[in-house]
Amino acid sequence: MPENQAEPWEYCLYIPNDLRAVTVSRRTLRLILTMHGLIRLVDVAELLAAELVSNAVRHTKGPAALRVCWSAGVLRIGAWDADPEPPRPPRSLEPDAGLEDGRGLALVRACADLWGWHPLARHGNRGKFVWCELAAA
């Protein structure tokens, strides 16, 4: 039986700078959401997490992390990476013959209820946190 969905929870998965981490992150997120009775959010959440983690490992050189939080009926998915540079602005989802990638944040913007990013610079840590939210209803 799923846990009470009213109770807040949080998970953090630290990952190496390796594209295989995208698959590990998706599968871990699926397991977390299933165990908490949030299977209806899995497909969109997996897509969002894959885009955020993929950006973190493709565009930076250091480690990264996936953070998943549930509170007040909202699922927040975020990816931390060690690069303090802001994410590239979302491109259009329209097909462009010259682009093979670069649409990740546009997908996040289109599928999430809310998204954003902020730099991190406390306790000597540098980097950024890119996040998005999905409402349960």
Rank of each mutant, 00 (worst) to 15 (best):
Q5V: 05
K128V: 11
A106G: 15
L75P: 01
R126P: 00
E51Y: 08
R27W: 05
G102N: 07
Y14C: 06
R67A: 09
V108T: 07
M35S: 13
P119D: 08
L120W: 07
Q5A: 09
V24L: 15
L13M: 11
K61M: 09
M35E: 15
M35C: 05
A97H: 07
C111D: 00
L13E: 05
R67Y: 02
I32T: 04
P84T: 07
P2V: 04
E133K: 06
V130M: 13
V24H: 05
C111K: 14
L134M: 11
A106V: 03
R67H: 13
W115P: 01
P8A: 07
M35L: 14
W80N: 06
N55H: 03
N125E: 15
L120G: 06
P2I: 05
P119L: 00
M35D: 14
S25W: 04
E10S: 14
A65M: 06
A65T: 03
L48R: 05
L47Q: 09
R58N: 12
C132R: 04
A50F: 04
L41C: 08
R91S: 15
D113V: 01
L107T: 09
L33R: 02
L13C: 05
A56N: 08
N17Q: 14
L48V: 03
G124V: 10
K128D: 04
L105C: 06
K61R: 13
H118S: 11
W80L: 13
D96G: 00
V42Y: 01
A72F: 00
L66R: 01
P8Q: 06
W117R: 07
D96C: 06
H118Y: 12
N4H: 05
L114Q: 13
H123W: 14
R67S: 12
L47P: 00
P2T: 04
H123R: 13
L99K: 11
R27Q: 15
P2C: 04
D81P: 08
P95I: 09
D18L: 10
K61G: 14
R20T: 10
H123T: 07
D18G: 04
R122C: 08
W70C: 02
S54L: 12
R109Y: 00
P95A: 12
P86N: 05
A79C: 13
E133Q: 12
I77Q: 11
G78F: 06
I77K: 09
R126A: 14
N4R: 07
L52A: 07
A110F: 12
A72E: 15
R26G: 11
G73A: 08
L120F: 08
A65F: 09
L93S: 06
P16I: 08
P16K: 10
L134V: 03
R20I: 01
I32E: 07
H36M: 09
D83C: 12
P16W: 06
V57W: 03
C12W: 10
W117C: 10
A82M: 10
P90T: 05
S25L: 04
T60K: 03
V53F: 01
R20K: 13
A112E: 11
E3S: 12
R30S: 07
L48W: 10
R109V: 00
L13W: 01
L134Q: 06
A6F: 02
I39S: 11
G37R: 03
H118F: 13
L52M: 10
V42M: 04
A112T: 04
V53C: 02
H118P: 00
H59P: 02
I32V: 15
M35K: 14
V130Q: 12
V130N: 08
G127Q: 10
A106R: 02
